[in-house]
Design a protein around this nucleic acid. Structure first.
Lengths: 190, 190
DNA sequence: ACCTGAACACCGTTCAAGT
DNA sequence: ACCTGAACACCGTTCAAGT
């Protein structure tokens, strides 16, 4: 039951779809440059009225979700592929975590999504698949006796979300590596 | 060399000091109720002009720092006392971390201070002593052979800061305990 | 010295009026 | 149906004018 609720309406009027796409395009660039970019500024840069932006994305979180949707989906899809391709489940697990951390290093926006347990609906819609991906990786590694049993996938996701906070400097990279290693040792990995 | 730079001017005109104290008092309550409370609102509640607040605390961070100064100082002072009183350095280290997490559970404001490596001056002034406290605890535990050598104090501080993000619900408490246990296992504790 | 509070440019959000 | 953009209440921050 991998319920990936799709917040994008099936049918959209042509102009509406064009607006939506342009907003996302502009927002991607704007949020990458400044995670706190104002919604009004994004609307203006996209050449639409403020109301139009709010029609498509009722709040900031929804917009951020829209922007990173593709990347998140790709990450979720990567988990089973790594499990199939890598030599061991633990190797797959490690690789997946590194990918996630790298991704977050560039895009600062998703961090907050991983942090709090918001009960928002379309938050759940992206959080769920991520959680399932981690769960699959952990269960495989656990079954192979490579990590200790009883680990919690949500805990891991919180730890990974935190790694996105480290700055993309050389020192930050080293810190991320150390913390990732600490996490795996904490999970009982060899 | 425990340089605890004191941002509070030595001598202050009586009315200025009274204002400063009342701002801090009001801010403590306001920020506890809502971590995003507006500075204008705090100034008004304290019965001072907006400019007065900005004179004493030029930005939000400085105000937050001022509010939690006492608690942070107490925490820093607690480390050597625990090391002296507890049966083992590791026990002291664990207790100190639990105290810090509990403290953060109530006051959401300090979280961000622990997260990024800002080069702000009065940020350093509070960050440094905290780092030293953790370092002392870790070195003692390391010398006693209770944790693996080579652990990084800043890493630990980041992990602890993250624990403040978990909600103060029953589920959150359980998660904080699990993550703390994971951290100590990751550090090589028995 | 220190304080006040109006003023500035901006924010998120809404909603009548248009097509 | 969808869009526009003026309007609202608010934000952080500044600064002339007061004591």
């Amino acid at each position: 039951m991998s319920r990936t609720a799709d917040p994008v309406p099936e049918t959209l009027r042509a102009d509406a779809k064009a607006n939506r796409d342009r907003i996302l395009e502009v927002a991607t660039a704007a949020l990458a440059a400044d995670p706190d970019a104002s919604l009004n500024a994004i609307a203006k840069a996209a050449g639409v009225g403020a109301g139009t932006l709010y029609r498509h994305f009722p709040n900031r979180e929804t917009l951020v979700l829209g922007v990173y949707r593709h990347e998140i989906d790709a990450l979720v899809a990567l988990a089973p592929r790594l499990l199939a391709a890598e030599a061991s489940p633990l190797a797959a697990f490690r690789l997946w975590c590194e990918r996630l951390v790298q991704m977050g290093k560039v895009k600062h926006g998703i961090v907050d999504l991983l942090h709090a347990a918001r009960s928002d609906e379309d938050f759940e819609a992206t959080y769920w698949p991520m959680l399932e991906a981690v769960r699959a990786l952990m269960q495989a590694a656990e079954a192979a006796g490579e990590i200790a049993p009883g680990g919690d996938a949500a805990d891991v996701l919180i730890l990974l979300g935190m790694l996105w906070r480290v700055p993309p400097t050389e020192e930050g990279e080293a810190r991320a590596r150390r913390l990732l290693a600490l996490m795996f040792r904490g999970l009982g990995a060899a």
